[in-house]
Design a binder for these strands. Structure first.
Lengths: 201, 201
DNA sequence: CTAGCCATGTAATCCGTTACATGATTGG
DNA sequence: CCAATCATGTAACGGATTACATGGCTAG
């Protein structure tokens, strides 16, 4: 009852950094770039998190830091995982992720949709539809580029899994948008002839 | 260049509250309940946001507050929108939502999947598959209950739209899980016979 | 020489949750 | 009378982004 047995919740950035260390990325700068270029479709991270986390990991001896730069080498700090770090990474990996409280702004807006002219709702959904279509296409092309890549990274199969996730979900959103747009069109047409042949109950 | 012309970004809770005021909800308590019971599948809100926002809306004259309770009535504060409040709500509604930085923990874990035995990855995805299935079923049942409801709220068509969103996306996730589980099974089988009839290029 | 990238870091701020505190009212 | 629910609020904390500050190195 009293003992707080849970292993103390740590920020997710910490594990993102541990994971990137585990794949051989050595500097904070590299990690930021990797997030932007390769994980951008499902993760984001800022310097304001990365550098403090790296310092903290060294303090807790989950990672070590080499500050020395061989002369002529660009000044930078190279980090690497300790065995304790590996263990903590693995422990986190098998922990089932807990979903964050949902906050889907588009749906919130639509749930208040009656306060708007229907055309405005159609605009909201239409814009979203376009964005999703673009995203899906882009993910799809990254996917096939990666599949056909000459030099394949050992993590490649897992990257493909994440890409397929993004594509699948975007495609589903496109389908939802299309259905929704049709429904909105119907509502608008009903609105436009409230008299006519309408039978009231 | 210098003039900050943008209308100053406000927290989303503010607009959630404005929206709920626009549908006739009058007290903070009511709003919290409404979020939990009706918007729970795409939105969340805590008292720690709701009450301060209400106070602030009154200060800015977007809402008014009636503190008096008729005798015998439960003590509570009843809020309602002013015309300025309505205007701000509408302005927000037509603004295209900007997507928050992505943070999909499951995908982050899977992208580091090679650090785990494949069975552990299968567990992660399998658990997710179950959760999505449950969610999809639940949303689906809410959907049909709402469609067949006797007393239909004027906002009902829009609520159905949000429910369909949730269901569609969950179903897509289920499909992704199933595909992924199969892919992982294949990877595991390949792993288990690295010799055998494998032809090494 | 200088523009731009490499590289590290901090301070301010923000949005939001959690935990806590209080008390009135109602139903059994 | 007691438990549950109605109802309002605040304080502490936390995770994360943004903006800022600094400086070395490199290519043109």
């Amino acid at each position: 009852m009293s003992s707080n047995n849970a292993p103390k919740k740590q920020p997710r950035s910490r594990y993102a950094v541990l994971g990137m260390l585990s794949m051989g990325l050595e500097t904070g700068y590299e990690m930021k770039k990797h997030v932007e270029q390769n994980l951008g479709h499902f993760w984001s991270e800022s310097y304001g998190q990365i550098y403090p986390v790296l310092r903290q990991l060294v303090e807790e001896e989950l990672a070590t830091c080499e500050s020395e730069n061989r002369p002529g080498e660009r000044q930078r700090k190279r980090y690497s995982l300790t065995s304790v770090g590996w263990a903590e990474l693995r422990a986190w990996l098998i922990r089932p992720p807990e979903p964050p409280p949902p906050r889907l702004e588009l749906l919130l807006k639509l749930s208040f949709g009656r306060r708007l002219p229907i055309e405005a709702c159609e605009k909201l959904v239409g814009d979203h539809r376009e964005a999703c279509g673009r995203d899906a296409a882009q993910l799809s092309s990254i996917e096939s580029a990666l599949r056909n890549a000459a030099n394949r990274h050992p993590d490649q199969p897992f990257w493909l899994i994440t890409l397929r996730y993004g594509r699948t979900l975007r495609e589903a959103e496109c389908a939802w948008c299309d259905e929704t747009l049709e429904q909105l069109r119907n509502m608008r047409e009903e609105d436009e002839q409230p008299s006519g042949s309408a039978v009231r109950e």
